[in-house]
Amino acid sequence: MTRAYGNDLRERVVAAVLAGETVRAVASRFGVSVSAVVKWSGRQRMTGTSAARPMGGKRRDVMQPVRDFALARMKTAPSLTIRALQAELAAQGVVVSYGAVWAFLHREQLSFKKNRAGQ
């Protein structure tokens, strides 16, 4: 994943723009894109700092609204497959991926491992 430019570079770029240089000249001199110079200068005017905003974010849990249903369904039919649970959720209008259902079941510590000793 890419990283944000350092604050020292951002501050020098914004200072050059504030000193009266054109955006294109500043971009060429510092080796950054014109759009970056415009964004950093605009952020400096709006917030008082040209520092980068935090990257990434927290992903929302798509299974949270149907958690109770899924757990109840797994309790009544413990041998239900992930694909079958995914299909039942889709029938209710909740479209989730296989990976989302798997991650949910893993978080809830519901295992699908089959072995002869458990039978």
Rank of each mutant, 00 (worst) to 15 (best):
M63S: 08
R67G: 02
Q64T: 02
V37H: 00
R67A: 09
V34S: 05
S28A: 12
K75V: 04
P78F: 01
R45Q: 14
G48A: 05
Q44K: 14
R60C: 07
A52T: 06
G57M: 12
R67S: 08
V32Y: 00
P54D: 11
W40T: 06
R43G: 04
M74S: 05
W40R: 08
V32A: 03
V32C: 02
D68W: 06
S33C: 07
R43M: 13
V62A: 06
R53Q: 11
A77Y: 13
R29G: 01
A70K: 02
A72V: 07
S33E: 07
K58A: 08
P65I: 04
A52N: 07
G31K: 13
P65A: 05
V62K: 09
S35Q: 13
G48L: 06
G56L: 08
R73C: 03
A25H: 11
V62E: 07
V37M: 00
R29A: 09
R43Q: 15
A70I: 03
A77Q: 15
V62T: 08
R67I: 03
M55D: 11
V62C: 08
V26N: 02
P78A: 01
K75I: 04
D68A: 13
A36S: 15
A25L: 08
S35M: 12
G57Y: 12
T47A: 13
D61L: 12
R29M: 07
V32F: 00
G56I: 12
S50T: 06
A72D: 15
V32W: 03
R45F: 06
S41W: 13
R53T: 10
T76N: 04
A52K: 08
R59E: 10
S41V: 04
R45V: 05
P78Q: 00
G56K: 06
S41Q: 12
P54T: 10
L71N: 06
V34F: 01
